[in-house]
Amino acid sequence: MSSALRERAPATHDRGAGRADRLGGARRRRMPRHAGFAYLLLAPALILFSIAFLIPIGYSIGLSFMGSRSTGSAFAPPETVFVQLDNYAGVLADPTFWSSLGRLGVFAIVMVPLMMGTAILLALLLDLPRVRARAFSRTAIFLPYAVPSVIAALMWGFLYVPQISPVYQFASGLGIELPALLTGGFVQVAIVNVVLWGGIGFNTIIIYTALQSLPKEQIDAARIDGCDELRIARFVKLPHVVPATLLTGLFSVIGALQIYSEPQMLSTLTTSIDSTFFPLMRVYRDAFAHDDLNAASAASILLALATVLLSLLVLGLRTVLARRTR
């Protein structure tokens, strides 16, 4: 179909619409002009999207309804059978699935507001008229964005060891006893910190960029009205960056739900992160350590559904808020 369109498309606009009518007939006439060229432009995206998204999704759904059953003897390869919803039931009945979801919830609820709050604060500070070392600060804040999370986790892994960490030495120099982050309940703090470190910069710059698009006259007007910087930030700048914040906030939520590399890297450094700590680590364990792609597919699909629902919720919130600010 697409090749036929590709040939027809140039003909349509090169030689006028009349020709197209003659060629196409009644059904063709309803086709908007130049649609063929649009399909041509879309083709690579659609083909690649099918290869990289649609077919794997379908395949994954298929896998989630299959299972391997041993055939009895010790060394005969197991056979693959249709198991209906067994994999889903198995995932939902597994307490480690729910505890990993619980930890993910705590992580996201703590991490995302901290990330966005800090990013907004830093963006507002960068946007203040009299602040010093602006360019340097902006660059330094943005720098961690260029550091892969695997490497970030390695660096922080060292900075978390009290005996050798400059952070701990600095704190104890000030008389503050920092807790060892890689033990017990503090490990969530350790993970949140690595993620914040890597993510705040990007969000700050996005929000800062949004601030820059605020018309200068609007700020000047507020200033003439006697607003101090705090009030300008609160009543002029903040409302202006709400849409951008919600958008990057949404990305942060999606990113938070996909957390994998940081805890995976840290898990070799601490006993507090087990192989089912976060849902994706659990999926990875099922797929690879347990060699059970079926259970892994079922869990992936449940997670994907949950993410999409949650995102739609955030998007809905955005629409409502956008309407209200308008």
Binding site: L128, A133, S137, L143, P144, M155, W156, L159, I200
Partner: peptide
């Protein structure tokens, strides 16, 4: 600009420490 600058520089220190390390 003093207090904001100090807060900003504290943040900068946080972001730079691992890299300097």
């Amino acid at each position: 600009g003093f207090v904001p600058t100090v807060v900003l520089l504290a943040a900068v220190a946080y972001f730079l420490v691992p890299v300097v390390w």
